[in-house]
Design a protein around this nucleic acid. Structure first.
Lengths: 354, 354
DNA sequence: AGAACGGATCGAATCGATTCGATCGAGCGA
DNA sequence: TCGCTCGATCGAATCGATTCGATCCGTTCT
């Protein structure tokens, strides 16, 4: 119960090292950081004292207060962490981000927007924040961050004031896919969409999805489809995965008004839909055309070549990481809009004439 | 161009807020943190002053210095980040870690052991560190952390002094798989192993792998195989993925002395090997038995039921996360050893009599 | 009424380093 | 020999908050 125990446990500080070495604290600091002129003899003395005391180097917490920077960049994903990294796209993006931030010597702090008592986005010691596909639901937190002068970069998120944005032509790319289907003669097209909000259940696409959707990416892609097919229905999958796509595909294809083409909002979902079709004895592309989104090389496809749009996922991540680093350094990087490339494979064909 | 020139000059501090509110800094602090008795009137005054000044709340950096805790737990993976999360196992583990640390209100700082100028493991403002499958190569960094009094938890890593360990029966589990094959009459068994070190190239398993291997997990699993088959060869895959397994499988099965059974060190690799066999016209399990490791439900398997060992990946993560949290709180959690369960599926069969 | 009590508030020390400006010599050219 | 400059070192302020102990004052108990 006495304070002695804690006193014994006390870790040495730079001041203690300086005292033992017989130099001032400032000199000891210089000896460690290497900045500023320190004679070799003094440096040795300080290092020896540190060794003797078991001093492990400057406390990062004190450093980050004094320097005003912590070397940490936060990355906020909308889903739970496990979902976020299930999709190869997210991974590629994360990868790009990590490459750039790593280069700048910064660490990545994983934060999840959804659920759970995670650390508060507003009170983590970060130098900048990257939002990934986050909705306006985060507006409040973002406002706090902005108030604090924290640089914020958003990848495929709603526009928020003061936030640098890295965007993708989700709407236009989907429209291009849709027009491809239109040219092939398809009239009855359905969507298998990514989740439109935080709920984790598969359901028919609600008619008022435009108002309901909180996921920026999902909504934009739906809009692109609507641009070409003003009327369409579909299923909202629980996540971006093959299994979720299969489940949604089954729900869609077992119905009475079976579509002749399906627009899946990710390649994983598309593969799932194709699987579902196969298990129902529906031939792709003869009886059903399927398109995806992302352009990820998935070896689960077998001989198939998926019609999809290829997006530069890793580049998006790199751009975001670089922007964050530049913002921290006081630069003024520009918002960037990436475009995807239509890739026509062998999973789409002209609508068969009945 | 946003009109916040004044804000850019100098961000308000708690002291400024206190001054405007006409109270002392200590009172203002109490008003924000909620700890300690503050009259409602005073609290309102402080909050109003904060609002007027655009004060966004206490600076996390200063807080973490004063409180001695940053609310951040570091997680160090051996691979590059992209590889680390490619494998569903890693994800499940990360997921378990995130669940527990999230519950405790801590954020997860992603650090990579391998390559690149990542933030220095030794100088990040963390409260604890979780090492995932890290080798003794990290010994030096870990020593520094220990010196600093930082709690360290290691999942499937080499034993390091002062480090709490969460382990898996990699060796014994592999031995059980091997004995299963032995009982089935297999004599010519090869391995498709995970990388044994940082190099990213596929190669034949070197004879002196026990000395060369820096990956704890890989080595333990190889040892388990050796316990049953003193002599065996194989291929080192570039990573844990279906594609890598297929490539390694091709290299293995195209050779002259084709094995009658393959021990793959992960389910992903096993699936790849099966694919390779199929593409070569080798029937599984009639002509080739294949076993995996992990017990992950992969829907790429089709009708197949992989013989493997099922490990509690998420539980491992949870245990590590919980241990880290307890250590931070000053507790003394125990090291935990997890065991995996042999699952005999349909990818193994008795060696065919020629 | 006086003492004891307890809630609200304040002052000052503290967390552990970084960094600016000043100081102090030693070497150097004039 | 006298400044003068440059390199090494030191003192002190600073980063922005938390928190311990003391103070002040309105209540309540006896």
């Amino acid at each position: 119960m006495d304070g002695e125990a804690s006193a014994v446990t006390q870790r040495p500080t730079l001041a203690a090292v300086a005292a033992l070495a017989g130099v001032s604290g400032s000199t000891a600091s210089l000896a460690f950081s290497g900045a500023g002129p320190v004679s070799e003899a003094t440096r040795m003395k300080v290092l020896a004292a540190a060794e003797a005391l078991g001093y492990a180097g400057p406390d990062p917490r004190a450093q980050s207060l004094r320097r005003g920077r912590s070397g940490i960049i936060g990355i906020v994903v909308e889903d739970a962490l496990q979902d976020a990294f299930r999709d190869p796209m997210s991974l590629a993006m994360l990868d790009g981000v990590a490459a750039e931030t790593g280069n700048a010597g910064a660490g990545l702090l994983l934060l999840s927007d959804a659920g759970g008592p995670q650390i508060d986005i507003r009170s983590a010691p970060m130098d900048a924040v990257i939002l990934v596909g986050c909705s306006t639901r985060l507006d409040e937190s973002v406002a706090v961050l902005r108030k604090r002068g924290m640089p914020v970069v958003a990848i495929e998120a709603d526009d928020m004031p003061g936030v640098l944005s890295i965007s993708l032509d989700n709407r236009d790319a989907t429209a291009r896919l849709a027009r491809h289907l239109l040219h092939l003669g398809h009239e009855n097209v359905s969507v298998v969409s990514l989740p439109i909000d935080g709920s984790k259940i598969q359901s028919p696409l609600p008619a008022d999805w435009d108002a309901l959707a909180t996921s920026h990416t999902t909504r934009d892609r739906l809009r692109g489809l609507r641009d070409v097919y003003p009327e369409f229905g579909g299923i909202v999958a629980v996540r971006s995965s093959i299994e979720a796509g299969r489940a949604a595909g089954l729900a869609l294809l077992e119905g009475a008004m079976r579509p002749t083409a399906v627009v899946a909002q990710s390649d994983l979902l598309a593969i799932g839909v194709i699987r579902a079709a196969e298990s129902l004895g529906i031939r792709v592309p003869q009886e059903l055309s399927v398109v995806g989104f992302d352009g990820v090389q998935i070896d689960e496809l077998g001989e198939r070549d998926l019609t999809t749009v290829i997006q530069p996922a890793q580049d998006k991540g790199r751009a975001a990481g670089r922007a964050a680093v530049e913002l921290i350094a006081g630069g003024t990087p520009q918002s960037t809009a990436f475009t995807s490339v239509l890739h026509i494979g062998s999973t789409t064909a002209a609508k068969s004439q009945p």
